[in-house]
Design a protein around this nucleic acid. Sequence first.
RNA 1: GGCCCCGUGGUCAAGCGGUUAAGACAUCGCCCUUUCACGGCGGAGACAUGGGUUCGAUUCCCGUCGGGGUCACCA
Length: 550
Amino acid sequence: MDYNELADLIFPNAKEIEYYETRYPERNLVEGAMVTRFAPSPTGFVHIGGLFGGIIDKKLAEQSNGVFILRIEDTDQKREIENGTAQIVNSLKDFGIEPDEGMISETEEKGNYGPYKQSQRKDIYQAYAKSLIKRGLAYPCFCTPEELEKIREKQEAAKIRPGYYGIWAKDRTLPIDEAVNKIKNGEKYIIRFKSQGREDRKIKHKDIIKGNIEFPENDQDIVIIKADGLPTYHFAHAVDDHLMRVTHVIRGDEWVSSIPLHLELFKALGFRPPKYAHTATIMKDENGSKRKISKRKDPEAAVSYYHEEGIPQEAVVEYLLNIANSNFEPWRRANKDADISEFELQLNKMSVSGAVFDMVKLLDVSKNVISKFTAEKIYNESLKWGQRYDKELEKMLTEDKEYAMRILNIERGNEKPRKDISKWSEIKHSIEYMYNDVFEKNTNYEFQKISDMNEIKTILKKYIEKYFDINDDKQTWFDKIKDLSEEMGYAREVKQYKQEPDKYKGHVGDISTVIRVALTGRCNTPDLYEIMQILGKETIVARINKICGG
RNA sequence: GGCCCCGUGGUCAAGCGGUUAAGACAUCGCCCUUUCACGGCGGAGACAUGGGUUCGAUUCCCGUCGGGGUCACCA
């Protein structure tokens, strides 16, 4: 018996690897084109860190005229969730990320280098595993989980490095005949890689982000094909990224410690390894200490969170780009209205250590992003959000679209647009007083300096009877408020009042505030003149009478 | 514990042997202003630590401390 026979016994139907090598040829791309891939497993919602990686993958491929692949790593069938792939595809789409190749729905894919779901590539992995067995670089291992556990316990007791390697890798030296017999007897087994590495030797590696790293060679005989016939991550990574002709692997830095293994795998398989870029983990601040942002504890770890909160996808992407490249902010300042696709991401400018996720900063970015939107876009986006998450808002926006648009257009579209909205979930609060049915429920007027109700009523009565005319232009309108102030014993100008405070009861600002509060219930609002123009004469009179009459 | 990575204001971060150690967010004050938001100006606030190397270290080397990652038939 020799390795060939053993290989044939284990994988009788596997094709020769040459078949796949010609089936998936080198890509014919322009010089410098990057082939990247985002390769999540369908185990739940997309993580903010995953989105981060996906954005980088997409951008790099796009700006180099390369290819961005979406591959699904569903080799762990226990953890897989229903419609996991569709969820990933849709989440990415929400953020404007669509693959050039790979999965485009739960079951559909595009591209010539597929299948793009690992569970459908079983034959490919087995062919390469077989080739390894033939060359004596992989072998069947019959150890049960219990045996493995015992080995581990021994190692721990002896305080030596745990794992399946060297003398601990007992099936590594199992005679071929014995292995064959065990297989024929129906004993369960998995396939392990036969490492040629030595722990006392060093390996050097240059990571695009982390720079030069040196570590001991891998000497672990890791499993490459599991009991269910599917590959482990490590093996699938080597086979897929080679066959899909991926040039740059961008992944989270939890993988750096696997580099010695991966490099050895590529070497054993005869593949040229890709370039690696290991991105720093996004962290979360918890009582002053940093930790990895977590699916369990942190709602903002799920990208669906941003959708639910109504933070526009552009803002999230922009914030993430901010974390990714420190030169993004200067770029943005110099190119205020440019589309982010024009920004050139540089891998070598990526941060080496993990950034703490800063929601306040995100909201600031978002505020600026929204301030550049047109009223139309704000209307459409917040309506979309409202339809899904807030029926009341939906009603406000749809019962009279033109009215809603006028509200949303207040102080917008000019040089210094309003920057008071950072997410759609804030919209309702900022417009609701413009709606009579909501306003009527308001009983709490936040009057400020002038709080004597008699004085307030007098001011309002005089205003409505003597000074109010809906047709006035802004200047006339304000001049009249000044006239009213004077008549009531308040200074026409704030400065006047500050110079001689004893001469006046207050100033024009106090009078305006009374009108503002009477009309909106709030002491802080956007431009009162615009609000009044939108409210209209009837509503204004009614709202003032509501106070004066009561 | 072994191995690997990281350590500049509260946060994100420029700087990479000689700088008054940028900038953004947050914070505080002032100005603008009928309120708020915007905008403008200004303040406070940092090179974890101990040794080297050097004429000179935030920058280079070593130790310490602190943080993170990883050690699965999970990815």
